[in-house]
């Protein structure tokens, strides 16, 4: 009853975004056109990274998919279901999320087990049964053990006592505890020290591959962008300006991405005055 899966068979799109637009503070001097017509398709099992300059609208795009606000125009479909007007909490049945801030994804004062208990019923009804009966806790410990961080012995510690890296790893585990149709990662390693960041990045890749997840990851790390995903989406000023397909990913290296950014920057520099110079001096 929850889902009417698009019974198209064959290659259906897990995420379909059409003509998505969002303007903050419209018709004021502070107007920000954060999304200016985004079209994006992710097929099932596709892991795409979004890169782009600061303020290019990456987080806004992710938030629009997650439902933090409603877009001005356009549609969002997940697995064939149109969710454009759904409330954020309702989308959670399809979407797992990890945030940039390690504090954002967990309830600090509650124990690890309680946090995971919440994630175990993501998008499901929550009744008056005890959240953590014995057998659930055992299953929980088994899965937490796969993180290799020894957290299975600390299930009853408040999650706030963990390091940022540990919290982010747990948040990732929680977001994928029930297989989400779409996993959204917003710079989820950015706030970590290099070692933890690498650890969480490796874990991200491992989980996504093992569970064959469809994922959208915002990152500022070019290294991550060329190593982890099988697609890169480059954004600038609310638009997708370049995409690297799966076949291109085999050769894309960091310098090429940097050069592509450079070209985008140069494009900005070409103002009417320069246009005028080129009119006189270009053949």
């Amino acid at each position: 009853m929850l889902t009417s899966t698009a019974g198209t068979g064959g290659k259906s799109m897990m995420l379909e975004i059409r003509g998505l637009r969002k303007t903050f503070f419209p018709d004021t001097p502070n107007e920000v056109r954060a999304l200016q017509g985004i079209d994006l398709d992710l097929s099932e099992g596709c892991f795409a990274a979004i890169i782009g300059t600061n303020g290019s609208g990456k987080s806004t795009l992710l938030n629009a998919v997650a439902g933090s606000f409603l877009p001005d125009q356009g549609t969002v479909r997940i697995d064939g279901v149109e969710i454009t007007r759904w409330e954020e909490y309702r989308r959670a049945q399809y979407v797992g999320r990890v945030f940039q801030n390690p504090f954002a994804g967990t309830a600090a004062g509650m124990t690890i087990a309680e946090n995971i208990g919440l994630a175990m019923r993501r998008g499901l009804s929550r009744g008056l049964r005890p959240a953590l009966p014995r057998q659930v806790r055992d299953a929980m410990a088994d899965r937490v053990r796969t993180l290799g961080m020894g957290l299975e012995n600390r299930l009853d510690n408040p999650i706030g006592t963990l390091s940022g890296g540990q919290r982010q790893a747990l948040t990732l585990l929680m977001a994928t505890w029930l297989k989400p149709r779409l996993l959204l990662l917003d710079e989820h390693t950015a706030a970590l020290d290099p070692k933890s960041a690498a650890q969480v990045a490796a874990l991200t890749r491992e989980i996504i591959e093992r569970e064959h997840l469809t994922a959208l990851m915002v990152t500022h790390s070019m290294q991550q962008a060329v190593q982890l995903p099988n697609r890169i989406i480059m954004m600038h000023q609310g638009r997708i300006v370049r995409q690297y397909s799966e076949s291109e990913m085999a050769r894309v290296r960091v310098p090429e991405l940097l050069a592509a950014f450079d070209r985008i920057r140069r494009r900005e520099q070409l103002d009417p005055a320069v246009s005028d110079i080129l009119g006189r001096q270009y053949l």
Binding site: A92, F103, G105, A107, G117, R121, G127, L128
Partner: peptide, 20 residues
């Protein structure tokens, strides 16, 4: 209970609660 933990989490972190 499930509902009770959800209630507690609401006070701790509304963003996380919505994401769940």
């Amino acid at each position: 209970t499930h509902l009770g933990t959800a209630l507690r989490a609401t006070g701790e972190n509304a963003q996380m609660v919505r994401a769940q």
